[in-house]
Design a protein around this nucleic acid. Sequence first.
DNA 1: CGTGAAAGCCCGCGATT
DNA 2: AATCGCGGGCTTTCACG
Lengths: 161, 161
Amino acid sequence: MDERDIRLLKAIADLGTGSPERLHEETDIPVSTIHYRLNNLKEAGVIENDLYDVDLEAFGLGVTVIVEVLADYAGPYEEVGEKLLAVEGVTQAHFTMGETDFVVIARLTDSDMVERLIRDFETIDEVERTNSTYVIATMRDTHNALQSYSLETLVEELADE
Amino acid sequence: MDERDIRLLKAIADLGTGSPERLHEETDIPVSTIHYRLNNLKEAGVIENDLYDVDLEAFGLGVTVIVEVLADYAGPYEEVGEKLLAVEGVTQAHFTMGETDFVVIARLTDSDMVERLIRDFETIDEVERTNSTYVIATMRDTHNALQSYSLETLVEELADE
DNA sequence: CGTGAAAGCCCGCGATT
DNA sequence: AATCGCGGGCTTTCACG
């Protein structure tokens, strides 16, 4: 992966599309070269998949909750994690170190559903305690960390390897 | 938005792609109708954008941190939020109610960069205190809350409107 | 909402450096 | 091994039933 790949990925992050033509306009790299590069990146697993960003508000999923979960488990943490993931509405689950064991983020319709979510969590054997925080407004929610990085920083990081 | 749209969006969430042909295989809805529907959904803002999922590990962005930010501000919260978003590596920022004011999630390269992140936060005038939690493993991180919902639930939600 | 044909884009091939 | 032009083929669009 060289500077040209970075420029490509940055363009993808900024434009929010993988369209070769759009990328060509943005980067001035010839269309067929973009193909060549993109294929390599896919092969290497750098680009996982193409997907759609669905607006959850449209489904009435307007409520976001962040739940800290304290668990007591003997086996591997993955087992507990799987049970958390199975609860309806969970969009993120992070296994963490520190005061709490898991940080879970869920998207729900209303406070009734929040109640059900918490109840579902508490029902899990290994779960000891939960601590919920309501989200009033989400200012950013993107997988594209690249968007927040400057091209220079990314190239620099690359050089360190 | 009717039941057919829901089926379409559910298929998108499940397959992880917006490819009309794949969607046709899954739903048996004619290809051109899928185009028609998808266009409407885009117009309505239900589908925000099509994008690529970039593997952040490939950039050495292997460290995830969750930071709770306590702030003291006179003006609107957006002002503080903007300052938080400007810090390099921030992928999510939620304005919350409860013990803390913001929950921020960032993707970074190493602990040096975590230090810098915290320092950047603390430098912001309105920020009073921060509390960081390291993520050991992320078990799920998807915008696709739809994946975790059953088709029945979604249609039911729709009917309530 | 479905059909068909025309337009435009994607992407692999192969020649070039 | 990377780059780039070309052209077949598929995807998408659009006017109509």
